[in-house]
Simulated assay, not measured.
Amino acid sequence: MKPYIESASAAGLEWVKSSYSGNNGNCTEVAALPDGDRAVRDSKRPEGPVLRFGSAGFRAFLDGVVDGSFR
């Protein structure tokens, strides 16, 4: 499994932005993939790179966001 998906493949996904996101444009969007994985992208660049996470990797990503690991 590649850790990313091609932007053309991401075009048909249903992207969701957190309700905590403001209107400043600095948002991360998430989409559920048919196989249960999650795709993550930057809302400022919807045509840009898309990261792909399995369930354990996505949980670790969320935990890192919550605990401030990415500051």
Rank of each mutant, 00 (worst) to 15 (best):
V50D: 01
G57T: 01
A10T: 00
G68M: 03
A56R: 03
V16E: 11
S9Y: 07
K44S: 13
I5G: 04
P49Q: 15
D42V: 05
G22I: 10
G54W: 00
A8Q: 08
Y4E: 14
E6S: 09
A10I: 00
V16Q: 13
E29Y: 09
V66C: 08
G57D: 06
Y20Q: 03
A56V: 01
Y4G: 13
A8T: 09
Y20G: 01
K44V: 14
G48H: 09
L62T: 02
S19C: 15
S69H: 11
A56P: 01
F70P: 08
S9G: 12
G36K: 05
S19F: 11
S21H: 07
A31W: 03
V66G: 04
Y4M: 14
G36S: 10
G22C: 13
R59C: 09
D42P: 15
N24Q: 14
Y20L: 06
R59G: 15
R71M: 11
A8P: 02
E6T: 02
A60W: 02
D63F: 07
S7H: 11
A39D: 04
F58L: 05
N24S: 15
E6R: 07
W15V: 06
V50M: 09
R52A: 00
L33A: 01
I5D: 01
Y4L: 13
Y20D: 01
S43M: 07
D67A: 08
S43K: 03
G36V: 03
A31Y: 09
L51C: 03
K2F: 00
M1S: 12
K17G: 12
G25F: 03
Y20P: 05
A39T: 06
T28S: 06
F58R: 02
S18W: 08
S21Q: 08
L62A: 03
G68I: 02
E47K: 10
F58E: 02
A39N: 08
K44T: 13
G48T: 04
E47P: 05
A8H: 12
L51E: 01
S69R: 15
V40H: 08
L62F: 05
A32L: 14
N23M: 04
S19P: 14
V16P: 00
